[in-house]
């Protein structure tokens, strides 16, 4: 393989990510004249790709399984909703939401030092469920209806007062969010985490603080989830208990699987594909659970490395054929 193609393969993830972010930005900007419904949908997609990206990061790089990211996502959203009557600035609301999520992740993450992986995953599941029950039950969280009616003004100077303006502003936030996720993977922090995933024996034998790094990774993922949850609340100006359901934690995992668990670009692709799929499916049928479940099962059994895996396989085949043609000549 020529060095150019080698370099291309090696940086495939980064290149793919840049391409997708650009496409998403174009998508967002194209909604300027569209219906509110479409603007809300695309705005949601822009938020979700970062959230799902953070979940993918948690699994793939940090190596921690968590079924409770909804705690930080939904928790931040609720924090925004609860603080909104008292705080006028959307920027400040976002920071408060992220702060709450980060503190929560810092507390929950402590169990990483204490408890084996599967138990930790179940613990996060249980905590997520508890939060869901709490949100539905208590009056101060708005009960089953939730919190609503808070407006949004400007976020770090960008206009988010209408869905249209929000979607346009998301160009900035999604791009920054993706940059952050990229940095978290390629900075020294990410390299250490990847090394730990590669061989924790070797990492320990070199004196690496394995659980400290995993904890840090978990807190960071929680913080990013908090950013997304806060943005969600500001987009819809409403927060209902549904946001704390297990599906909020489980769907990103599915999306990551569909897109491909092995690369930075997989979760993003999976997220977009999944959201559009569900959008189309629920317009057609009421039985979306059955369809989604079937599709997921098919993907797992037939294409375990997801969309990215399929693309990777196809590219390898093409490159191999080209090489053989070269050699024959």
């Amino acid at each position: 393989m020529s060095t150019f193609t080698e370099r291309l393969r090696r940086h495939g993830g980064t290149i793919g990510l840049i391409v997708i972010v650009l496409l998403l930005d174009v998508l967002a900007l194209s909604q300027a004249g569209g219906s509110v419904e479409r603007q809300l949908f695309v705005g949601n997609v822009m938020i979700q790709v970062i959230f799902v990206g953070s979940v993918g990061y948690l699994y793939r790089i940090v190596g921690v399984a968590s079924f409770g990211q909804a705690i930080f996502y939904g928790g931040a959203a609720y924090t925004v909703g609860l603080a909104a009557p008292h705080v006028g600035s959307s920027t400040l609301l976002l920071l408060i939401g992220v702060g709450a999520a980060t503190i929560a992740a810092a507390v929950v993450g402590l169990f990483i030092f204490r408890v084996p992986g599967l138990s930790f995953a179940i613990l996060t599941l249980a905590l997520g469920e508890s939060l869901f029950v709490l949100a539905r039950r208590e009056r101060w969280t708005g009960g089953d209806t939730g919190l609503f009616g808070f407006g949004a003004g400007r976020l770090f100077g960008l206009d988010i007062s209408t869905p249209g303006a929000f979607v346009a502003s998301m160009v900035v936030f999604t791009s920054l969010g993706m940059l952050l996720l990229w940095w978290l993977e390629y900075s020294r922090f990410g390299v250490v985490l990847r090394a730990i995933r590669s061989s924790d024996r070797r990492a320990a034998a070199l004196g690496a603080g394995i659980r400290t790094y995993r904890y840090a990774g978990f807190v960071v993922a929680g913080a990013v989830s908090g950013v997304c949850g806060s943005l969600y609340a500001l987009l819809w100006n409403l927060v209902s208990p549904d946001i704390l359901q297990w599906s909020t934690s489980g769907d990103p995992i599915i999306m990551t699987l569909i897109g491909g668990m092995g690369s930075i670009v997989g979760p993003v692709i999976g997220c977009v594909a999944f959201l559009y799929l569900v959008d189309i499916a629920s317009a057609i049928t009421d039985q979306w659970e059955l369809w989604v479940g079937t599709i997921l099962l098919v993907v797992i059994l037939a294409a375990p490395r997801g969309v990215v895996g399929l693309v990777d396989d196809a590219v390898s085949r093409v490159l191999r054929r080209k090489e053989e043609a070269h050699r024959v000549r």
Binding site: S198, S199, A208
Partner: peptide
């Protein structure tokens, strides 16, 4: 060794990881 990382990254990590806190690393 760390299969996914390059030879150079392997050595770099080996040299620095013991005293490297996540905060500095990020």
């Amino acid at each position: 060794v760390f299969d996914e990382l390059s030879v150079e990254q392997n050595v770099a990590l080996a040299a620095e990881v013991a005293g490297l806190s996540p905060l500095r690393a990020v």
